[in-house]
Amino acid sequence: MTATPAATIGGIPIPDSKLAGEATELIRDITDDLIYHHSRRVYLFGARHGLHHGLDFDPELLYVGALFHDLGLTEKFRSSQQRFELDGADEARAFLTARGIPEDRARLVWEGIALHTTPEIPHHMAPEVALVTAGVELDVLGIGYDTLPPETREAIVAAHPRPDFKRRILHAFHVGLAHRPQTTFGNVKADVLARFEEGYTRPNFVQIIEDSPWTD
């Protein structure tokens, strides 16, 4: 796929295509300001990382991956019982294949979203996968903050503000996960419920093995 940049933020081109426009419209309609602006920052931070490191990536696929990555935290989709990452991944793949994107390309977007809370592994995968995680890690965890030129960071945050972001994103994680605590086992989101959900008991991998029905 090719996309002609219509605009830039902080020197980072934003895809201008029918596909990108439809993705933007859909996500703007079903997410609040918190998730929308976060998702756009994830694209911008991820794309900047890719450009800075000379990676060959498809901006449209990265854009869709970034925009859909937290869809599972929204009111429309967070009622499922699967991992919230899969909610967004499944919707993104359906969105792309419905518009004629080949399955192998849509699969890259699915993987980028599904794995964005799994440390390290995405960085060894295709750039469209790795860069979603890079964008999330910078915006949420601050990983790479000091490597980003201040003028780039300021331009991105001016276009997509993050007022009280730390508290609000943690609240969104809590609300999106409290009804499906089993899905946090083995991933970083267990920390959210351990901090904010009264009565939550973190599953213990060793105890699960020891309590399994096997006799030895």
Rank of each mutant, 00 (worst) to 15 (best):
D104C: 07
L55C: 00
I156H: 00
H37F: 13
D33M: 07
V192W: 04
V109I: 13
G21Q: 05
A66L: 10
A98I: 09
A94H: 05
L131S: 00
L141I: 06
R28W: 11
A159Q: 04
T2M: 11
N187E: 11
R40V: 10
T8E: 12
T183C: 06
E91A: 14
L148K: 09
H160L: 07
A89H: 07
R28E: 15
T2A: 13
D56C: 12
L44G: 01
T8D: 03
T97N: 06
D164C: 03
I30R: 10
L55M: 03
E75C: 00
F95D: 09
M125A: 09
E198S: 11
T97L: 08
P122Q: 08
H123P: 01
V206L: 15
D58W: 05
E75N: 01
T97Q: 10
T118Q: 13
P15E: 00
P161N: 09
R162D: 13
P203A: 02
V175P: 06
K189I: 12
Q182L: 13
Q207A: 11
F205Q: 15
L19K: 05
L177W: 05
G65H: 08
R83A: 15
K189H: 14
P213M: 10
G10R: 04
P149C: 05
P5E: 02
P149L: 04
A6Q: 08
H49L: 00
S39Y: 07
T24C: 03
F68G: 08
A159K: 01
R107T: 11
G100P: 10
H116L: 10
E22M: 13
L96S: 09
A190F: 05
D58E: 12
Q81S: 12
L73R: 08
S17F: 02
Y43F: 14
I113P: 01
G21D: 06
R167N: 13
H38T: 11
T2W: 12
I35N: 04
H160E: 09
D87K: 07
V188I: 15
E60N: 10
F77G: 11
N187F: 09
D216C: 12
K76G: 05
D70I: 08
P150N: 04
S79D: 15
F95P: 14
I30E: 11
E75A: 13
A158Y: 01
T74W: 04
H69D: 08
D164R: 11
R99C: 12
T201W: 12
L19A: 01
T31V: 05
L96C: 14
A194G: 06
F205I: 14
V132Q: 02
V129Y: 03
T118G: 01
T147Y: 10
T117H: 15
E75W: 08
P122S: 07
F57G: 04
T201V: 12
L86P: 00
G186W: 01
L71P: 07
G199I: 06
D216H: 10
Q81D: 07
T133L: 11
R48V: 00
D16P: 07
K76S: 13
L61Y: 04
V129Q: 06
L96Q: 09
T183Y: 02
G176L: 02
I209E: 13
R168F: 12
I169P: 03
A130T: 03
L62V: 01
Q81G: 10
V140A: 09
G65N: 07
